[in-house]
Nucleic acid binder design. Structure first.
Length: 431
RNA sequence: UCAGGUGUAGCUCAAUCGGCAGAGCGGGUGGCUGUUAACCACUAGGUUGGAGGUUCGAGUCCUCCCACCUGAGCCA
């Protein structure tokens, strides 16, 4: 009985007989020869079937193998320059697990809507493997980064009683005949956790019911949100900068092959260096005005403005001190310029725009109460949050990193939707 | 919600001025011992997004509707 193995480990078995278990990625016949491209999730290898080496009925049975049929192939591993990857399997036995029905996704071109309609099958393709493996690496880098710094992972709830930020749209659910909402951010809960554990982060899904139809938006996306007690804006920015460096270093170290398959320009990632450029809102405004943007001083930066600024730098740009009026109620004001918030947005380079938003939180009870009133938020829903300012309030800060936007940038993709296994957008909840 | 665009075979797309509904791929059948999106021959495959209208005649023009795409606003 030949040992079972994975294609990723095939080099160890050169000259030996092994059994591989997988699916037919593509196949082609040439008379008495058949070539079966087998994938098993770890890689792809070509199986060669020659009529003279097999019982005739087995050779004929293999002719019936369709794309994505599941098979166990047993054969000898050989080296062959003619094969992609350098190795081949000289097949001696075939165990057909199932003959697949006609697979909708052929090796030829398809439109994005068709592919998304078949997302559950599209995941089998090489490019989607590459993107989702980079996603996995980014997640691992984030978790390792915070874990190594002594942070505690504290999961935030997904059902929440009220908006974290009053302006945006919430998904409403019926929670035993009461209204509940899907979370827009774990931040307020992380503030509670930071007062308990000092350094914390959460990593979970986030929901926004905004009717945004752009390549940067999903209705369900994942965020990594650290929160640190006794932390000011400058320390917060150091933390964010370190996280992004860690992500970039790790994907360059471990996912080079996937990035190259995605035709990512690696030099753009290799060019990223600390310290990242830091601009305050006034400097950013001047840059936009010089570039001829219709930007109005006092407004939030629009998507084209973010693109314009980030294109001027090879590393992510940190834009700070936005007008408090355009930011959330919990942002702490700059004591030197009370009309400004102690906040930071990090814009990814190459025009990718905002991937991080964060800053220092308002830690004074009375100020926070007046902000909640001014924003017309239901105070009763925030009683627990206000308790954090009553019982040992300290300066603290944190940020949220949008995972899919980060992966879009790292992979150099045009659109965010391929960076999550099953995207949810305003027009898609299937499959 | 607003602006622009698209909708034709399973998929990707053609169809001139309003004049016979087409190709490639994929599928099926046959051929080939080195294919990489193979190649060659044959073959099946259509409610042109939907409903009205104009016309001798509509994939094409008009009205309404639907779906999707790309942006804006909002945001990560």
């Amino acid at each position: 009985m030949a040992p079972k193995t994975y294609i990723a480990d095939i080099a160890k078995y050169l000259g030996q007989e092994v059994t591989l278990q997988g699916w037919i990625y593509n196949s082609t016949q040439k008379g008495k020869l058949q070539f079966l491209m087998l994938r098993d999730g770890t890689g792809i290898i070509q199986g060669v079937i020659f009529k003279g080496n097999l019982p005739e009925e087995l050779f004929d049975a293999c002719l019936a193998l369709t794309q994505e049929s599941s098979v166990r192939l047993t054969g000898t591993v050989t080296e062959d320059k003619r094969a992609k990857g350098g190795y081949e399997l000289q097949v001696s036995a075939v165990d057909i697990v199932q003959i697949a029905a006609e697979f909708p996704i052929s090796p030829k071109e398809h439109g994005i809507d068709f592919l998304m309609e078949h997302r559950h099958l599209w995941l089998r393709s090489a490019l989607q493997h590459a993107v989702l493996r980079v996603r996995h690496e980014v997640i691992r880098a984030c978790r390792d980064y915070f874990d190594d710094l002594g942070f505690t992972l504290i999961d935030a709830p997904i059902f929440t009683p009220a908006a974290c930020e009053g302006t945006t749209t919430l998904f409403e659910t019926n929670y035993f005949d009461e209204k509940a909402y899907l979370t827009q951010s774990g931040q307020l809960y992380m503030e509670a956790a930071a007062m308990a554990f000092g350094k914390v982060y959460c990593f979970g899904p986030t929901f926004r019911a905004e009717k945004s139809k752009t390549r940067r938006h999903l209705t369900e996306f994942w965020m990594i949100e650290p929160e640190v007690a006794y932390c000011d804006l400058a320390m917060d920015m150091e933390l964010a900068e370190g996280l992004l460096m860690k992500i970039v270093e790790r994907v360059l170290e471990n996912r080079r092959e996937e990035l190259l398959r995605l035709e990512r320009d690696l030099s753009a990632l290799e060019a990223i260096k600390r310290p990242f450029p830091r601009l305050d809102y006034d400097e950013a405004s001047r840059m936009l005005k010089d570039a001829g943007s219709p930007f109005v001083f006092g407004d939030d930066l629009g998507a084209p403005d973010e693109t314009l600024i980030s294109q001027n730098f090879s590393s992510p740009v940190m834009v700070t001190h936005y007008p408090a009026a355009v930011k959330a109620f919990y942002m702490k004001r700059d004591p030197l310029r009370p009309e400004r918030a102690l906040c930071v947005d990090v814009l990814a380079p190459e025009g990718y725009g905002e991937i991080i938003g964060g800053g220092q939180r308002e830690d004074d009870l009375d100020t926070l109460i007046s902000r909640i009133t001014a924003h017309h938020l239901p105070k009763s829903a925030f009683d627990w949050y206000l308790d954090l300012r009553k019982y040992g309030s300290v300066p603290h800060a944190g940020f949220g990193l949008g995972l899919e936007r980060t992966v879009t940038w790292i992979c150099g993709l045009q659109h965010i939707r391929e960076t999550i296994p099953f995207p949810r957008t305003i027009s898609r909840i299937y499959p």
